[in-house]
Simulated scan of single mutants.
Amino acid sequence: MTKLITEPNLPRPDDFYQVLMDMHRDLSDEQSADVNARLILLLSNHIGDQRVLEEAMHIAREHIA
């Protein structure tokens, strides 16, 4: 069983963040939501571990009141 990695794990997080922001440049809100959904599905397929994905979804939603 794999566990979700929540500690910093990207060698260059600022570079990744910039590429992520660039991906959204000049997109409408609807296009931005679409590209986010596609990215989530692609990465989820790559991860391929239902428990890890559910843990990530739970953690992602924790801050919502």
Score class of each variant (00 low, 15 high):
28 S>K: 01
11 P>Q: 09
33 A>H: 10
21 M>R: 14
28 S>R: 02
23 M>D: 01
17 Y>M: 11
40 I>E: 09
30 E>Q: 14
16 F>D: 09
22 D>A: 07
14 D>M: 02
11 P>T: 09
12 R>I: 00
31 Q>N: 06
21 M>L: 15
28 S>F: 04
33 A>S: 14
35 V>Y: 02
9 N>D: 03
16 F>P: 00
37 A>L: 15
29 D>Q: 05
10 L>A: 04
30 E>G: 04
9 N>W: 04
9 N>F: 14
30 E>R: 05
35 V>R: 15
28 S>M: 06
36 N>D: 14
13 P>V: 01
31 Q>G: 08
38 R>P: 01
28 S>L: 06
13 P>W: 00
12 R>K: 15
16 F>W: 12
17 Y>E: 12
13 P>D: 02
33 A>I: 10
36 N>I: 07
26 D>Q: 11
31 Q>D: 13
37 A>C: 10
17 Y>F: 13
34 D>I: 05
16 F>M: 03
29 D>H: 06
39 L>R: 07
22 D>G: 10
15 D>T: 08
10 L>S: 13
15 D>M: 01
10 L>Y: 02
22 D>W: 00
21 M>I: 09
16 F>T: 13
9 N>S: 13
34 D>Q: 13
30 E>H: 10
22 D>K: 06
30 E>C: 04
11 P>C: 04
35 V>K: 09
14 D>S: 13
34 D>V: 10
17 Y>W: 13
30 E>I: 10
25 R>E: 08
15 D>V: 03
35 V>F: 04
28 S>G: 07
23 M>Q: 11
36 N>Q: 09
30 E>Y: 10
28 S>D: 04
25 R>D: 13
27 L>V: 03
